[in-house]
Design a protein around this nucleic acid. Structure first.
Lengths: 163, 163
DNA sequence: GAGGTTTGGTTGCGTTTGCAACAATCCCAG
DNA sequence: CTGGGATTGTTGCAAACGCAACCAAACCTC
């Protein structure tokens, strides 16, 4: 119950016009560039970006990782990750290996095939990203990232099943 | 076949570090704020944002609209809209009315219930949006919108089924 | 005005998602 | 060491999605 009293006074607290513009632009543009990249991957016969991200995160860690430690930075729900790993494992891209310290869970590790796929995807992903984003120059990109990060202080953890 | 020759030379055209930062921030932040608003709607027992957007677009037009004229600004695929309308019609929120000039298609019109829902949703949507975005001030929001719009020149029309 | 192409929209089918319920283990207080 | 709650991860089911195939009307050309 986190209603501010300001909210009780005013029937609806309106976002300013500028905020609304930013909101709309954010939605459209992020969908646009996201889509551009996903299409590029699909056209090249690759799986979707989330697969890449999982593989990359595992590779970056350099050692087996618990799903829960992946779910937060990936910003996805546990059951989503569970099924994503199901599919990736079925394709032989990652392995679930037993976890001694905590028998509930397991560790995730990319296979050789997983490494290879990640690399191959990057060869498409990178140019596509560049392509999608190159309308702004470096300085603008930095400013954009800064503004977004200021905006994005929201707690990401509770997306999808907040309690 | 729109490969630049620069692409043939360099094995992969890397996005600059700044672009990558902007890309990552864009993905996370947009997901975050989007999610925040969707959650607010869900918690209030309302349907998802896309329903609102359809209703709003219809209301804004002030007259019956063809699906195709909605699909582009909404940036969704025809079959997605078709089924979205199916569900909304089933809930009595919009009506498909016959189209004299073109017997393939039809016009979409919000019902009274549709109008009412749109308004009710806004009472949740607006504060949620404000809430999600209020970490930046008006000037920053304007700058953000500007940068995003510069970035977002990408043709949106071919998202999902480019040929 | 007959035939082919394009446009507007829908649908069957297999896959993926979201939710809520579940199981298994861990942790901690007493 | 024992019972209650918290954590970690999975799953059954219904809803939603993506794709490709499809239908019907419109348009265009000869």
């Amino acid at each position: 119950m986190r209603l501010q009293q300001s909210q009780l006074k005013a029937p609806t607290r309106l976002p300013s016009d500028s905020l609304q513009r930013a909101w709309v632009a954010l939605g459209r543009v992020s969908q646009g560039v996201q889509c551009h990249v996903e299409n590029a991957l699909k056209e090249a016969g690759f799986p979707e970006l989330s697969w890449y991200t999982v593989l990359w995160e595992l590779e970056r860690a350099g050692k087996p990782v618990r799903p829960k430690d992946l779910a937060i930075p990936l910003f996805i729900l546990p059951y989503q990750l569970s099924r994503l790993v199901d599919r990736m494992e079925a394709e032989g891209l990652v392995k679930r290996i037993q976890c001694k310290e905590d028998k509930r869970g397991h560790m995730l590790e990319p296979t050789a095939k997983g490494f290879a796929l990640r690399k191959a995807m990057w060869a498409v992903y990178a140019p596509a990203m560049d392509d999608a984003m190159s309308r702004i120059d470096d300085k603008e990109a930095l400013k954009l990232a800064e503004l977004l990060n200021k905006l994005g202080g929201i707690e990401h953890a509770d997306c999808g099943d907040k309690g």
